[in-house]
Amino acid sequence: MPPPVFRFAPSPNGLLHLGHARSALLNYDAARRSRGRFLLRIEDIDATRCRSQFEAAIYEDLGWLGITWETPVRRQSDHLADYRAALDRLAALGLLYPSFESRAEIAALVKAREAEGIWLRDPDGAPLYPGAAKSLPASERQRRLRSGAPFALRLDMDAACRLAGNLTWTEQGSGPGGETGEVVARPEAWGDVILARKDTPTSYHLSVVVDDALQGVTNVVRGQDLFWSTAVHRLLQALLDLPRPVYRHHDLIRDGAGKKLSKSSAATGLRELRLRGMSAGEVRRLIGLP
């Protein structure tokens, strides 16, 4: 039986903090206990925010924590053809369509709907897509695409759910409400999610399931903030005929106000803590690890 494969997949859009340290160490420790493999992946598809200096800092901070990883490291920006191939498969199934509204136009549509008492929010609280691009005639879609208009490529969620059928995932951790074991996936709660944009050839949802499959990841260990997103990932895995990893969602480290840590939180940044003289062992104890 092949060894289990774990991964840590940060984005180089800021410096790592204690929350990243916890996720990275949980994955690394689990890989060592199970005599499995530990992979590092750089999720750098957002060219407007990702920076080479932050990528270099990721390597430095993880090395300081005592973490080692297999090489070469997979950088998403080097594998855009893999995501294009996945989009082509979904398009061949008739599950994708372009929407052309700007973020401001969508916000106005949402505001108008909510004024009528219609709740249009996903599990993270963000507005669902309320537009009508799905019903545009094919000729009008092509006209707008040829004109160079900005667009978002969306998944037709209703059609995708009908095709995939009922889905679950195996949860070894727990969700925000204590959900564990075999969890029912409800991707419809996310509406017609964006899988790519004109200027960004993939999205987090699409790239994470493609990367996990291509790298043979068997165990996904990540924070509870991504718990409900797993429903979308299970849907895409089913549609693309990709393997189904086991999931473990862990508690988040929060600041004094109870909010999830952000990369702008210097007080909990690994580089700042190191400069203050804290050791890697003290960081482990600070985040509740032996």
Rank of each mutant, 00 (worst) to 15 (best):
A108H: 05
A159D: 00
L96K: 03
R143V: 06
E114D: 01
L163R: 15
G125K: 07
D88M: 04
S102G: 06
D124P: 04
P98W: 05
L163D: 11
P98S: 04
L65Y: 08
S139G: 07
I106V: 09
M157F: 06
G94S: 05
S77G: 04
I67C: 04
K134I: 15
Q172V: 01
A81P: 00
D88T: 09
G131F: 15
D156R: 12
R113M: 12
L136G: 11
A85D: 13
E116R: 14
A104E: 15
R154D: 12
V73P: 11
R143D: 04
P150H: 06
L87A: 03
L65E: 00
I106D: 05
K111F: 10
A149G: 03
E105H: 04
K134D: 14
R74V: 07
L145S: 02
A138S: 13
R144L: 07
A149Y: 01
L95E: 11
R103F: 00
L120T: 08
A107Q: 09
R113C: 10
L95Q: 06
E114G: 06
G125P: 05
G148P: 01
A112R: 15
A112S: 14
L163A: 11
C161V: 09
E105V: 00
A92I: 01
R84K: 12
S135L: 14
N166K: 11
A91D: 14
D156E: 04
S102H: 10
P130R: 01
D82T: 01
W169R: 01
D124S: 10
Y83A: 09
D124W: 14
L153C: 01
L62R: 02
A81T: 00
Q172M: 11
L62Y: 08
L87K: 07
Y97V: 05
T71I: 02
S102D: 09
D78Q: 13
D78H: 12
R162W: 05
K111V: 09
A92K: 05
F100L: 02
N166S: 10
E114N: 10
P137C: 03
L128C: 12
R144H: 05
T168G: 08
R121N: 07
R141T: 01
F151S: 02
A138Y: 09
A112Y: 13
P137N: 08
L163K: 15
L153M: 11
Y129E: 12
S147P: 00
T68N: 03
T168H: 15
S139I: 08
D158N: 07
G148E: 03
F151W: 15
S99R: 08
R154A: 01
E114T: 05
D122I: 02
E116Q: 15
W64T: 02
F100I: 06
W119D: 07
R143M: 03
A81H: 14
W69F: 10
A133K: 11
I118M: 11
A164C: 11
T68D: 06
A92W: 01
L167P: 07
P98C: 00
I106L: 11
R89S: 09
